[in-house]
Every structure is written in C-alpha cells, then in structure tokens.
Nucleic acid binder design. Structure first.
Lengths: 159, 159
DNA sequence: ATTTGACCTGTACTTAGCTTCAGGTGATAT
DNA sequence: ATATCACCTGAAGCTAAGTACAGGTCAAAT
C-alpha cells in the first residue's frame, strides 16, 4: 500500500505543511502512522478522512468540534447517533448562515442601486432628507416598488 | 433633537458598550459628537449610520474596510464611485460565500443520510470497503440515485 | 564525506475582534 | 456629603487558526 508524506499531502490538498501539523496537534489526525524515522505517512484511507475534515471546516465547523467528531469516529458504531446529531445541528447552523447572508446580499444590492442612481444624479442628495445625512423614506419606497414591478434585485444596481 | 448615550445605543442595537467604543476607536464612528463632559451623544442620524455599519459587518466586511467606507462617506459626493465599486466587490464576495455554504450544506446532508442509514443498519460497515475505513463508492452512487429519483436532499437524512 | 532537502519538535509571534481591568470624572439619589 | 452609576481612557488579556523560527534527525546526491 503506497503512502504519502506530509509534503505530498499538503500539495494535493492545497494546505501548508505547518497547517497539517497544527491539525495533528489539535487532535484531528490521530489515525496517521509514523515511519521508522518518526515521519508521518498518510494512506489513501487517511486522505479521505483528511478530506472529510476539510469539508467540515469549509462548513464552518471549528477545529475543536471536528476533533470531537474524529474521536467519536475512533469509538466505532457506538457513536453513530452522536455523529448524526452533530451533523444535524450543523445543518441547521449552515441553513441559518445562508439565510443571514441572503439578507445581507439584498441589503448590499439596495445600496448598489442607491449609489448607482446617486452617481447618475451626480449627488447623494437625491436620497437624503433636507439638511441631514439621513436617508429619505421615499428612497426605500422607490426601490421597493422597482423590486415589486418584477425587476431582479441583482440587476437593479448594475451600471 | 434628542440624542442617545452609548448605553442606550448598546441596548437598542444589541451590542456591548465596549464594542461600540472599540468601533469608535477603529474609526467607524467619526461622526459621533461629545457632550460637555466628554460623553458620546448619538443622534437618530448617527444611529442610521451605525445600523449601516452593522449591516456591512453582517455581510462579512471587516472593520478596517468599513472604516474606509465610512471615511469615503465623509468625503461627500466625490467618493460615490468608490463606494459603488466597494459594494460591487462585496456583492461578489457574498455570492461566492453563499455558493460555498450551499456546497457544504449538500455535503452535510449526504453525511446525515449516511449516518441515518448506518444507524438503521446498526453499523457503519454497510458503507465501508471490506477491511478498511474507506467509504465504498457504491454508497455515493446509492445516494446520487436517490437524489436523482426526485427526493429532496433536505429530507433524505431526516430520522 | 559533506551538504542538501524534507522532515521533526517546541515555542513564540500574528491578526481580528473583541473583553477585562485599573484608575478617573461627573451627575444624581439618599 | 457620600455613595452609586454611567460614562471616560489606556493598556493588557483572550480565542481561533494558523505562521515563523530555532535547533535537531535522517536519507539521498555530489
């Protein structure tokens, strides 16, 4: 069975060698064996687990939590329920995060439209209340009515 | 014109007083005036700007970048183009982030299904290659075919 | 035979975004 | 009149997720 050195793994996975050692130290790679000289050797199998770790990281799971998950794995089938519940919780987290970002996105799109129209007018004054830096409620209404008339928010702010 | 103290703003915005002082220090609140005793007084107008700052934060914009944005605002209409470009860039960032999270979500949903079926079988072995902790390609195919047969990924992993 | 390169450990440093703390002011309540 | 409370500043401390560095081992190439 052929194996990979830490440097090869780093290259394949797009990580630094230092980051991998950091993960090992943090308890994410208890399954990685060493050769006679004390150097880490990664099997194909190990690589798949490593990829799972990166997928969890991408999903916003902290290293500490991934370490729990990995240790449950080492416990075998007894922890299947725990692992399921963990993923279920993180599915909910992700759904919430996505919702938050969607809201932020519509906010940013409104602001883009705001600045696009201000640029066309040459001044931000068209959106502000007289003698203030506060936005005129009419500006929000105008945008809302444009949205409701079927225009996509994505395109409304495009120059 | 009635104004608000830092404590009132904190309560209204759901922040700590310390966080607000931190933002001020970081250059996010150059528009906030002080009373005779040196205490910050926030106007309605200031609150709206504050809300904008929180919206940008929620959109994943760093404090340093928000500070630039705020300083451009103070420059008036000359910076309208800069502000538009800034938002345009962040719209793209957000779109990418959402895409990444969507991918992570489908990954988590696959894993949930994986553990739900393993739980039903009482063991993870049903998904693994013989004598290995590597996942059997058949497992991926099975899931794919379930997805393709019209089942929603969201429900497939539900207990 | 020695030098290079990849690896090893352990410790220190870094950045973002706060929080905590120490020490001080000024208005209000008792 | 004194105690309490909200506020102030500046400096230090904290967490996450690494990065950088110093000093050492070992196999391979010159």
């Amino acid at each position: 069975m052929n194996t990979y050195s830490i440097g090869e793994v780093a290259r394949k996975m797009g990580l630094t060698v230092e980051a991998i050692r950091y993960y090992d130290h943090a308890g994410l790679l208890p399954f990685v064996k060493r050769d006679s000289g004390g150097r880490r050797r990664f099997t194909e199998d190990n690589m798949q687990l490593m990829q799972m770790i990166l997928d969890l990281k991408r999903a916003g799971v902290s290293i500490k939590e991934i370490a729990y998950f990995v240790s449950w794995r080492m416990d075998g089938d007894d922890s299947l329920g725990q692992r399921y519940d963990f993923l279920d919780q993180h599915e909910k987290n992700l759904e919430d995060q996505i919702q938050t970002l969607e809201k932020s996105l519509s906010y940013l799109r409104f602001k883009k439209w705001y600045y696009k129209t201000a640029l066309e007018a040459g001044t931000e004054q068209i959106h502000l209340m007289p003698d203030s830096t506060q936005v005129n409620p009419k500006t929000y209404k105008k945008y809302q009515s444009l949205i409701n008339s079927g225009k996509s928010a994505k395109s409304l702010g495009d120059k």
